[in-house]
């Protein structure tokens, strides 16, 4: 139910408005934060409007441009909506819209193969990150209490370093004359340098490396909260350690596991830097395709179409992530 005084500004109250209002000027406060209506309205509006303008509306424009045609002009798409002519200008543009870009995405193997390879890489690297990250998170949660803050910081620290630098660090290791090959050669494990850089293996290593903190931190915070007496109780009841791990530890770490997987899977789907620097031409992820279309071919409409389809693929994981975050923040409060 919408309170009459608030409906004018588009805000509803926390609860249904009580039927009889004895005071004509009853306070419009939230029950717990007695700021005035206008203060509350302004407080909500400033960040809200910012996000609407710079986060939500851009997607509408992307959707519109994805229906346009590419052209050699500034901006490189047609038709450009002439907002100055109002509805007529919009109508004229709408008549020129077509789904031809989306048809290209389906018909040309370059595009749909890029989506598929992104999905494969995102899925596999999420799995690998779990396999690498779980033992680390588990080890951290089982480390002596006094070490734990330091370990947490050591996981967070790389997060503050840019992906670009971290991917660059791997180039020096993986290239044919790089450190890994030098080491293997000097030990005598190999006779001639391996071709490591610009392979899909390098992309996986790079992704696991850069996204590991995103997996370890939520896993750790779930495992750290886990009461040791629970595993002790399970063992006391006759459950061998590996079964305890599987039946007690893993289910209780599930929220962290899900959060970690979403935090890795979603951004990796659109990853550009790592496949570009470490995969070279051996991998074609959709982020690279988009980059090339936008910067090299200046085909903004197809880049927009790629974005819209990518969003459509990611919308379910993103909604899952939002629900997870909202629930977490509500639990905190």
């Amino acid at each position: 139910m919408i309170d009459h005084n608030l409906s004018s500004v588009g805000l509803t109250r926390t609860e249904p408005a009580p039927a009889p209002r004895h005071e004509p000027e009853a306070p419009e406060n939230t029950p717990t934060n007695p700021t005035g209506t206008w203060g509350r309205f302004a407080l909500i509006c400033v960040p809200y409007v910012w996000l609407l303008l710079f986060f939500l509306i851009p997607f509408v424009i992307v959707a519109m441009v994805s229906l346009d045609e590419v052209t050699v002009a500034v901006p490189p798409y047609l038709p450009v909506i002439e907002w100055g002519r109002g509805v007529a200008g919009l109508w004229e543009a709408v008549q020129h819209w077509s789904l031809s870009n989306y048809v290209r995405l389906v018909e040309e193997a370059l595009y749909w193969q890029a989506y598929l390879s992104s999905l494969r890489i995102a899925f596999l690297s999420t799995l690998l990150t779990v396999l690498v990250g779980f033992p680390i998170a588990y080890g951290m949660a089982r480390a002596p209490r006094s070490w734990q803050p330091i370990l947490v910081m050591m996981v967070i620290l790389p997060f503050w370093t840019s992906f670009l630098i971290r991917a660059y660090a791997w180039i020096g290791i993986l290239r044919t004359d790089g450190l890994l090959n030098q080491a293997l050669l000097s030990v005598g494990l190999i006779n001639e340098p391996l071709f490591l850089l610009n392979t899909s293996g390098a992309v996986y290593v790079g992704i696991i490396y850069t996204y590991l903190p995103f997996m370890v931190l939520p896993l750790y915070s779930a495992l750290e909260r886990l009461d040791t007496t629970l595993t002790e109780a399970a063992e006391d009841l006759g459950c061998p350690p590996w079964k305890t791990f599987w039946y007690v530890t893993v289910p209780l770490a599930k929220p962290g596991l899900i959060a970690g997987c979403l935090l890795v899977f979603i951004p990796v789907m659109g990853e550009f830097i790592i496949p570009d620097l470490l995969g070279g031409s051996s991998t074609q992820m959709i982020g690279q395709t988009l980059w090339v279309e936008f910067f090299s071919h200046r085909d903004w409409p197809i880049a927009s179409a790629i974005t819209i389809v990518l969003l459509a693929v990611l919308i379910i994981p993103i909604l899952l992530f939002q629900r997870h975050e909202t629930r977490r923040s509500e639990e905190e409060t």
């Binding site: 009580p18 004895h22 009853a26 306070p27 406060n29 717990t32 007695p34």
Partner: peptide
Amino acid sequence: GFEVPSEG
């Protein structure tokens, strides 16, 4: 005054 009565 931290909560507003629903009625009364």
